[in-house]
Design a binder for these strands. Structure first.
Length: 472
RNA sequence: CGCGGGAUGGAGGAGUGGUACCUCGGGAGGCUCAUAACCUCCAGACUCCGGUUCGAAUCCGGAUCCCGCAACCA
């Protein structure tokens, strides 16, 4: 038994939950549930990232008090727990008191290490965006978002983080082969470090941006949003006290993130940890993106598919199934309503749903009493190896190969005929099918918790369940 | 020539030198226990151009297209 810590990135609360985040949190949930079933002590965290300029701006646009605004969105994300049947142990909001304290504490430690310094920063500033622009971002010398406004040169004194101090330490961290999954993203990170690390600004003048964590010992500055946000991975554990020691120091840690996060999670955050003398994250797993109809989901294209639309149409378990099996764990995947319908019908309705009905009906009709609870053997290595290697789709492929084999076996052995000529033989066969179905039910515990429960219960009580995965 | 990844039947995936495999979808049969389900069989593919090799989806070079790092958003 091992202590295991797993977390997602924190979604930024300026929009409704994205299906890509649903994918991320489901992957994390699958791992968390699987590890628990294997007897580990698991801490699974998620939450919301609530500070920063964009949120303040959005709240103002909508004429809302910013705290009210983030409260509203935090609720939208918390509701995912029920909609997707998530097993997270914590939900950390970066506006939580203990998080703010932790963010300030890690700031102080980095500062004590000499990694934070004040510097005058001169750059082109777009008033429309309220953000500094890089030379490379300019289009005809103007801000691409606000081509009618001239960028103004502004000088601001900010705090900087000595990222450059970790030019040698980060490659050492990245040497470990499983520090980043998939491995080719690790190469991407190593290359990035090789190209040279530049210190970056980690604060803003409070006058310009009030919605953030105050910089310790300097009332005129607040932290730049993701310096504060990254700290959530340990503030959620109560760092520097609480369960931090148990799960982070003495446990194995895994972060799940989107493929665009490599720099933030595997470099910047790891440098912050090194600076504060805190153990690095053991592993970061980067998932791919979901496109819809071949294009990036966007409101203007009108191809957005929200997690709640999925759960409304297919239900919780089916949504989990669709995202975990039919979306590739690390590569980009495309989904459309047509494909989703097809996957749902072929595998859930005609697959596990029909097989369950088929067997439990036979049992209900021909068995006089329920079977004994089947003795469980260890999970097949095809399944556990796939999960441990983050190949969630292949793990489920294996379960579905068992479903197919059982369907075939019933067709071949014709128990419905056997039972007419040799009752005892027929009953033996049916009891064997029930046991196999039970094993399949057990294998589905981490992915389809509800359906798994229904299947196991039906087997043990010798009753046919109604409408496990109904037709659309 | 900024860095990195990718292109396999209609769709999604596997396959790092030796008869191209799996799932869905399509077509034809079979079965009747089941949610018009299930089983069997069939058709159909390695982006393009070169090279290495007895032999290339796989290795090398080049081209084209796609994606991330890198402008509402995961």
């Amino acid at each position: 038994m091992t202590n295991k810590y797993i977390t997602t990135t924190l979604p930024y609360v300026n929009a409704d939950p994205h299906v890509g985040f649903a994918l991320e949190i489901l992957q994390a949930d699958l791992l968390a549930r699987h590890w628990r079933l294997q007897g580990n002590d698991v801490f699974f965290s998620t939450g919301t990232d609530e500070h920063g300029q964009k949120i303040l701006q959005k709240a103002e646009e909508e004429g809302k008090d910013v705290q009210e605004y983030v409260d509203h969105f935090a609720e939208q994300f918390k509701k995912l727990k029920e909609a997707l049947n998530l097993s997270n142990d914590a939900f950390i909001r970066t506006t939580d008191e203990n998080h703010i304290k932790a963010a300030q504490e890690i700031w102080k430690r980095c500062e004590a290490k000499g990694d934070i310094y004040k510097k005058k920063y001169k750059g082109l500033y777009c008033v429309g965006d309220e953000a500094f622009l890089k030379e490379s971002e300019l289009v005809d010398g103007k801000c691409p978002n606000h081509p009618t406004m001239d960028p103004v040169e502004i000088e601001e004194e900010n705090y900087f983080f000595r990222f450059s101090n970790y030019q040698d330490a980060l490659p050492k961290y990245l040497e470990r082969e499983d520090s980043i999954i998939p491995d080719w993203r690790r190469k991407e990170a190593i290359e990035f470090v090789k190209n040279g690390l530049e210190d970056f600004s980690i604060s803003r003048e409070k006058e310009r941006l009030s919605w953030g964590v105050p910089v310790p010992g300097d009332d005129s500055q607040v932290m730049y949003v993701w310096f504060d946000a990254l700290t959530n991975y340990i503030s959620t554990l109560g760092w520097p006290e609480g369960d931090f020691k148990k799960y982070w120091e003495e446990g194995e840690t895994l972060q799940v993130a989107g493929k665009d996060q490599v720099r933030f999670q595997s470099l910047i955050w790891q440098a912050m940890l090194l600076s504060a003398d805190i153990k690095n994250t053991d592993q970061v797993f980067y998932h791919g993106f979901i496109t819809s109809g071949g294009a990036k989901m966007s409101k203007s294209v009108g191809n957005v598919i929200s997690p709640y639309e999925l759960t409304d149409k297919y239900g919780t378990d089916a949504t989990r199934y669709l995202l975990l099996r039919h979306v590739h764990p690390v590569d980009d995947s495309d989904i459309t309503w047509e494909k989703l319908d097809e996957w749902y019908t072929a595998n859930l309705v005609n697959g596990i749903g029909n097989l369950t009905a088929r067997i439990t009906k036979l049992a209900e009709t021909h068995l006089e009493s329920p079977i004994e609870t089947p003795e469980l053997t260890p999970m097949p290595s095809e399944y556990t190896d796939a999960i441990n290697n983050f190949k969630f789709n292949e793990a489920l492929d294996h379960v579905w190969s068992l479903i197919g084999a059982l369907d075939k076996r019933i067709t071949d052995e014709e128990p419905f005929k056997v039972v007419k000529t040799d009752v005892e033989k027929g009953r033996e066969l049916i009891a064997e099918y029930l046991e196999e179905l039970y094993v399949i039910g057990v294998l589905l515990e981490a992915t389809l918790p509800e359906a798994s429960g229904v299947i196991k219960k039906s087997v043990l009580e010798n009753t046919k369940p109604e409408g496990l995965f109904a037709r659309l």
